[in-house]
Design a protein around this nucleic acid. Sequence first.
DNA 1: GCCGTTTTCGGCCCGACTGTTTTCAGTCG
Length: 580
Amino acid sequence: MKNKEVAQILDEIAALLEIKGENKYKIAAYQEAARRIENLPEDIERLFKQGKLYQIKGIGESIGQKIKEYLTTGKVSYLEELRKEIPPEILELLKIPGIGPKLAYRLYAELGIKDIDSLEKAAKEGKIRVLPRLGPKVEQNILEAIKEYREKQTVPERIPLGVALPLTEEIVNYLSQYPFIENIVPAGSLRRRKETIGDIDILITTSDMDRVNQVLKNLPILKNILAAGPTKTSIIVEPGIQVDFRVVEKSSFGAALQYFTGSKQHNIKLRELAIKKGLKINEYGVFRISDNKKIGGEKEEDIYEILGLQYIPPELREDQGEIESAMEGKLPNLVEERDILGDMHVHTDWSDGANTLEEMVEVAYKLGYKYVVISDHSQALGVAGGLTPEQIEKQRLKIQELNRKYRDFKILHSIEANILSDGSIDLPEEVLKNFDLVIAGLHSGFKQPKEKITERLVSAIKNPWVDIISHPTGRLINKRPAYEVDLPTILYWAKETGTVLEINAQPDRLDLCDIDARIAREKYGIYLSIGTDSHDIRSYSLIRYGIAVARRAWLQKEDIINTYPWEEAKLKLKRYRNQK
DNA sequence: GCCGTTTTCGGCCCGACTGTTTTCAGTCG
């Protein structure tokens, strides 16, 4: 997939045009096209080859030509020209908060500044304050911003949802105890459950911001305060994460929540829609343009209702077709945590889990599940104490025995088998066929070339005893990119063979990711499974991250196999279908 | 540069805050 590359190129063009002081709508058009392509639920190259490039919204004659040039020659001559005009190093200046394109260009043109070091030098020497419309305050702010920028360099860019969500809940719970805080709700990308978060936004209604600020100053995990005003307070909390608190009137709570939840593109779309209806939306409410009368905004649902839309769940608000669907009343009925009847991927201390089989089973039962899939590692994964055929047979008998103890609950015997470097599975067929189901995944040879990895996965997918592929792309958020794999080929064969793909709920995996999972279901009709990959009893709670991915992927209950009772779920697995 | 159940031309989301200015441009979210 070259979607990301293409998006980056368009973004760079936009940034360079911005510095040049080009028409802002032209710039916006490049940025818009970049966002569209980045979030496109399809391979841009494939679309191009099918001649469907211009079906993508935001891509017209001019941008389309540039994409075409890039996909065929690997270059964009327009961008090369721009780079000659403006050294791309100036783009580095834009990374300093407070420096936008206009200022960056002036600094370059008038002072010859083209990187952060020379910027710092000029600021220290007082060379910036002498320029018209710039003063000492600007210099000081630039120096502080550079200092902070350099400190931040060492910390990973975006915070994984698995870190941000518990932290936010901790803060919200803590603050909820104060009676003068009437309403407190997380907003932003956290509420949309994006896999990583920039900073945490929390919305508050209160009668007394002074006391709220007082409380925030004494927050146990407070590191420092960036700003504390009457409507907005920004702080840094212990792991170095920024939290913005915004205070609004109760009558504007819904509008503010909608606005601060975003995404930006989603909001822009809504506002355009509003204008066509003679309305204006801002964070205070919905207003009639003719007489400026406020007609809604206390509740978030107001905004969608007034625009004649179905209520759009936060996870869908990415301008990926949800507004159009809401208009037609065709939004999906998104899967919920309570729809899940069993965890599809669980380890025990038979391999590298921390808890015993009995403990893992008992907790799954107490959580109200109807079944649990015990899927320890198999022999090739020596470091994880992978099971040999003999151990597997023992475990099978143990599970058989354990199953007699439980009513209305089933322990399913599975394995997370390894796909070896030649694409074979590390257990013989006579062992594989005895499981209730088999999960297989790649745990080695990540550095192999794309063709090889794709081949291995396809070979596993074609294996009649492999029912589910675990963490199909192998990425670890902020740690390791996905291995090189041709996803469309994988999806094609999964569809052909009826193989299920996992949404692994470990917060550093979330694999398949939202975009890929949506493609898998929408374009290929593949079933997904959600498993926590638990290695201890506490990790069962991670299921909510898998649900978050599924919801962002527009998935409904029917799309996920472990929302079905086992007797129905199994009919969707390859081995049972083939037996029919 | 893109787009069209008010348009093939004339629009393109909205507001807060800051620093520099006497009315606003630039930046940010």
